[in-house]
């Protein structure tokens, strides 16, 4: 007979992971995400090798036309790590939604099951419960991000065209670590709205609206690029052309709030294709994550458990 009491904190963390692993919605998004992770290796590899081949074909064509001064291969100076830059788009899109669902379900699940009163009539403090829940969410995200890192790193190790330079694996790890920070922001946003919103579908759509603002609207306002073009990694890597007073002002004013751009800037910095200050962006991103986690913890602390008792 076991005598040692399992830690209450560990039980909540474990419970968080077990229940998540049983959620079909989560598993579906995870499957899409992982499929895209594998596919992105192919996309990166095939695009890079084809573009190289197209360059050589173009050079041959121009030479045949009698052109003598031919521009050097524009891809020569580009960091080989940027082959993985399309992963950034999947993290930006599917990753964020996956994170929102993880945060959202974390609390909606408890509400739907009607078990919150059962949790809080037991001797566990609110603070400890919240801490365990947040840790569970963070562990789930870490596991997912690490799996994507493993896919990228393995393909870099086994596909000759994707071979990384010295320090490449560490840089790739840095890229995924930054991605984890970005995902944590949306998981916290999902959790926050699931606590403060009464209606389940509104609770899901609020963080999605935040995401639309972060990924489409703010970048559009600060760069003048069209929304869909912002999902092209090359548009992201390219320097933003000077576009006059409005965009300069908007850039200065709104850039600090543009979570999506803070992420792309700091993540691309890790891959060696950055624009702007990637370290400053990372710190700003960390600050946003801190605020989002703080807000959701505060909301959870104030949540009236008895609200769900009067049905």
């Amino acid at each position: 007979m076991s005598a040692r009491a399992p830690s209450v904190f560990a039980s909540v963390v474990r419970h968080e992971l077990t229940t998540l692993a049983r959620e079909k919605t989560f598993l579906l998004l995870l499957a899409i995400f992982m499929a895209m992770t594998f596919f992105s290796v192919y996309i990166g590899w095939s695009t890079r090798t084809t573009t190289e081949a197209i360059y050589h074909a173009s050079v041959a064509y121009l030479a045949a036309q009698g052109v003598t001064s031919i521009v050097a291969d524009p891809l020569t100076g580009v960091s080989p790590l940027l082959v993985f830059d399309n992963m950034l788009v999947y993290l930006l899109l599917i990753g964020a939604l996956l994170a929102i669902v993880i945060g959202h379900r974390s609390f909606i699940r408890e509400r739907a099951a009607g078990v919150l009163p059962l949790v809080f009539v037991r001797p566990i403090s609110r603070a400890r419960y919240i801490g365990a829940k947040l840790l569970g969410i963070l562990l789930a995200l870490t596991g997912i991000v690490f799996a994507t890192y493993a896919v990228s790193a393995f393909s870099a190790a086994f596909i000759p065209a994707l071979r990384l330079p010295a320090g490449g694996y560490a840089a790739l790890l840095g890229f995924y670590a930054v991605s984890l920070v970005y995902l944590a922001f949306f998981a916290a946003a999902g959790l926050f709205f699931s606590v403060i919103m009464k209606n389940e579908s509104t609770a899901l759509f609020m963080p999605i609206l935040v995401w639309v603002a972060a990924v489409f609207i703010l970048p559009e306002l600060t760069t003048g690029q069209n929304p869909v073009a912002l999902l092209n990694p090359v548009t992201l890597t390219g320097a933003i052309p000077d576009q006059g007073l409005f965009f300069t002002a908007a850039h200065r004013l709104l850039s600090p709030f543009s979570v999506g751009q803070l992420y792309t800037r700091s993540a691309l910095g890790m891959l060696g294709g950055g624009i702007g200050n990637s370290i400053a962006s990372l710190f700003a991103l960390l600050a946003y994550v801190g605020v989002a986690i703080g807000a959701s913890a505060f909301a959870l602390r104030r949540y009236a458990v008895t609200r769900d008792l009067y049905l």
Binding site: I43, T47, T51, I54, N86, N232, P233, V234, T235, A239
Partner: peptide, 9 residues
């Protein structure tokens, strides 16, 4: 993303 013409800004 795969459009060769999109590989360079």
């Amino acid at each position: 993303t795969m459009d060769p013409d999109n590989q360079v800004p």
